[in-house]
Amino acid sequence: MIPFVDLQAQYLSIKEEIDAAVLKVLQSTQFILGSEVAAFEQEFAQYCNADYSVALNTGTSALHLALLAAGIGSGDEVITTPFTFVATVAAIVYTGATPVFVDIDPVSYTIDVTKIEQAITAKTKAILPVHLYGQPADMNPIMEIAQRHGLTVIEDAAQAHRAEYKDQRVGSIGDIGCFSFYPGKNLGAYGEGGAVVTNNPEYARTIKMLRDWGQEQRYHHVLKGYNYRMDGIQGAILRVKLRYLDAWTEARRAHAALYDQLLANSDVKTPAVMPYSYHVYHVYVVRSQERDALQQKLQQQGIQTGIHYPIPVHLQQAYADLGYKAGDFPCAELVANEVLSLPMCAELSSEQIKIVSAAVCESV
């Protein structure tokens, strides 16, 4: 079996450091927030070239609180993409605002910047681009549009730890950047986790209060807040893993280059890397008109794959109330029917990549 992601192999490679970090938290009994989380916040902010970082319990919470800190609420509209994990859209709905979708670029699969401006109305308050699969959205046009219209830009960087847009780390380009540390992410916790980064001290202060019941000091509730705090153990684990993220990223990029080479003459479409992008390959996604048959053939050969994502959000039953229909975003719908994610993690071997690539070439 060739796994889609090998979390056990990654843990075993850093087991001694992880075990020591977890034991330190157990001995300190700082189980919620605490010194390890505070240290991680400082280190992660520095890593992202941002002034502030606030650690949270999930990436979804990061998006939710980022929107609230930016003043997004009932009656507002937030422009985003329908081709993303549902959390991007759910966070907008949590605030009472309305998601407004813009189709994706057919090459990068990120939001089509040429279609954003026509979606802006008097109710629009923010743009929420998604750095999908580890490749940044085209941020310069987005920032220019936002500046012209007085809009906030919140980056969904849940899949893009260490990615860069024109030598700028994602998350630090817009007003607020949001990250997930779900275990399978490029920087993953051993449980749930998330964070925001920002250069705005007021946003950071507000999000810190919102994550901890709206308290600025214990039992003094300034805002109506939430229980979105990071566990101390996750902070300690993430501190260890952050030290390896550069090396793991280079391994992913090397694996992607080998896939590109081995699949160059196949009938699948390999990922495009945009000229502005330092792609970190959270997933390595190919396209095939015979996607479902290809996935089944690979599974029969012991090769795990994924689909990110089979149904765009505007066609999900849960969001039928938004009033969209099939055909509204044709590029997102076409791509959703064809994408297949091949095994990708730093721990993959060249031999495994060769086996997967040969199986793909033989199957389509």
Rank of each mutant, 00 (worst) to 15 (best):
E290K: 13
A320D: 12
V335I: 15
F329C: 11
L262C: 04
V197G: 01
Q10C: 02
A70N: 13
P275S: 10
H64Y: 10
H255D: 08
A293N: 09
A195H: 04
F181N: 06
G191R: 04
P129R: 03
T60L: 10
V153R: 02
D76W: 05
S108P: 07
Y182N: 12
L7M: 14
I355E: 14
A87I: 03
G193H: 08
T152M: 09
Q295L: 05
C345D: 15
M209D: 00
Q10S: 14
Y278C: 03
I176E: 01
T29K: 15
S13G: 06
S74F: 09
A157H: 03
A189Y: 00
L322Y: 09
T98K: 15
A66H: 04
I72T: 14
F181V: 01
V339Q: 12
V273N: 08
A358Q: 14
Q261Y: 05
L26W: 13
L340H: 07
A195V: 03
L12G: 00
Q317E: 15
G174E: 01
A21W: 12
S277C: 11
Q296M: 11
E351V: 13
Q301S: 06
H279E: 07
Y133N: 13
P275T: 02
V153M: 04
A236C: 04
C178Y: 04
V356K: 04
N199M: 01
A189F: 01
S288Q: 10
I176Y: 00
Q300F: 03
A39H: 08
Q217T: 15
A236P: 09
S341W: 01
Y226G: 00
Y259E: 02
Q352A: 14
Y226S: 00
K241I: 07
A21Y: 02
V170R: 04
H279G: 01
S288D: 08
Q234Y: 08
I32E: 11
F329Y: 14
N49Q: 15
F329M: 07
I154T: 05
A38M: 09
E77R: 09
L322I: 10
F31I: 13
L23I: 00
S61M: 10
P129T: 09
N227P: 02
I120F: 12
P82G: 01
H220C: 05
T88V: 14
N186W: 00
V286C: 08
L348W: 02
I355R: 15
P312F: 05
A21C: 05
S180M: 07
Q295R: 15
D103M: 06
Y284F: 11
A69G: 05
A158W: 00
L128C: 13
Y319D: 00
A204F: 05
L322M: 09
V107W: 07
L340A: 02
A204N: 09
S357R: 00
I92R: 01
A195F: 03
Q27Y: 10
M274D: 04
T114Q: 13
A21V: 08
R243E: 15
D328L: 09
E164N: 11
P271C: 10
H279D: 13
R252N: 14
E338F: 00
L334I: 08
Y276M: 11
G225W: 13
Q261N: 13
A160K: 07
L23W: 08
K15D: 11
A39M: 08
E43P: 01
S357I: 05
A336Y: 06
T124P: 10
F85L: 11
S108N: 06
Y47F: 15
T206I: 15
C331G: 00
L56T: 02
